[in-house]
């Protein structure tokens, strides 16, 4: 098969845009249902010039990354502790598994009661959502490290720290990255829902405001921005993955 260039992934979205614009121009898609791509671009320009867009994106980005950082690091630490220590696992895993089975978005009413609609509510929800994929995949990664390599490390005189640094952590890394990418997806999902329901800034808020005034172009623009941010986060994760997993044939020369 012929190799596709790096931009090949964008052929399909571009084609969809062209067809969409065409259908809007001939009036097949009414303006108040779905605005034409050109109208969305115009809306983009408008909010960009007014500074509204930069303001909202930076607020959303800050919430997403802070929530991810908090939830992700707690999840990672619990994953490490429970992967390495039976004691810690016995103590906490049952609780964590019970909490995991509660859809974190179902907590929104409670979270609003606790935190109101300010920043901490969103951070809490994002952190909670991100926690579990990172926790579970870190734990799984550590548990599935090849015991033969651990035994090799021990016979070659590695102490616990060396063993962790040179054998266990690198062995768990592919699985941790799976958790990271799941976590990034959940991060955006949670933020969208939280911002749409209760917020006074951010992309979700911008979309809800626009809905009040029937500005479909801004609504569509918000959705597209979410998609692009999600894609960006995934690309960063991939880059990290390729850099740290260079040894793995599955990640080489792609």
């Amino acid at each position: 098969m012929k190799r596709l260039g790096p931009l090949a992934g964008w052929i399909l979205p571009a084609a969809i845009l062209v067809i969409w614009e065409f259908l809007s121009r001939i009036g097949f898609i009414p303006e108040n249902v779905l605005p034409a791509p050109s109208a969305v671009a115009a809306a983009f320009w408008r909010v960009l010039v007014s500074g509204e867009l930069a303001q909202n994106i930076s607020v959303s980005f800050w919430r997403a990354s802070m929530g991810f950082l908090i939830g992700g690091s707690i999840g990672f630490l619990f994953g490490l502790a429970n992967g390495l220590s039976r004691f810690s696992e016995t103590l906490t895993d049952t609780t964590l598994q019970m909490v995991r089975n509660v859809p974190h978005l179902a907590l929104i009413p409670l979270v609003i009661l606790w935190f109101g609609i300010d920043e901490s509510a969103k951070l809490f929800l994002v952190a909670l959502g991100v926690f579990f994929p990172i926790y579970i995949n870190t734990l799984h990664g550590i548990r599935t490290v090849d015991p033969q390599l651990v035994e090799m490390g021990r016979t070659y005189g590695m102490n616990n720290w060396d063993l962790f640094r040179r054998v266990i952590l690198p062995g768990a890394l592919p699985s941790i990255f799976v958790g990271l990418r799941f976590g990034l997806g959940i991060m955006w999902l949670t933020l969208i829902v939280a911002e749409t329901i209760s917020a006074s800034s951010g992309i979700g808020y911008m979309a809800m405001q626009a809905r009040e005034f029937m500005m479909t172009d801004v609504v569509v623009l918000s959705i597209i921005i979410y998609a692009l941010l999600g894609k960006l986060a995934d690309a960063v994760a991939r880059l990290l993955e390729r850099y740290t997993l260079a040894w793995n044939p599955a990640f080489q020369s792609r």
């Binding site: 502790a81 992967g83 390495l84 220590s85 039976r86 004691f87 810690s88 696992e89 015991p147 651990v150 035994e151 021990r154 016979t155 005189g157 616990n160 063993l163 962790f164 266990i168």
Partner: peptide, 24 residues
Amino acid sequence: MFADAMTFIETATRRPPRELTTGT
């Protein structure tokens, strides 16, 4: 908590080697 960290790995993979292969 970390005091007993690694006990799982240790017990899962048999005993650590005798001192002579490591410490000396």
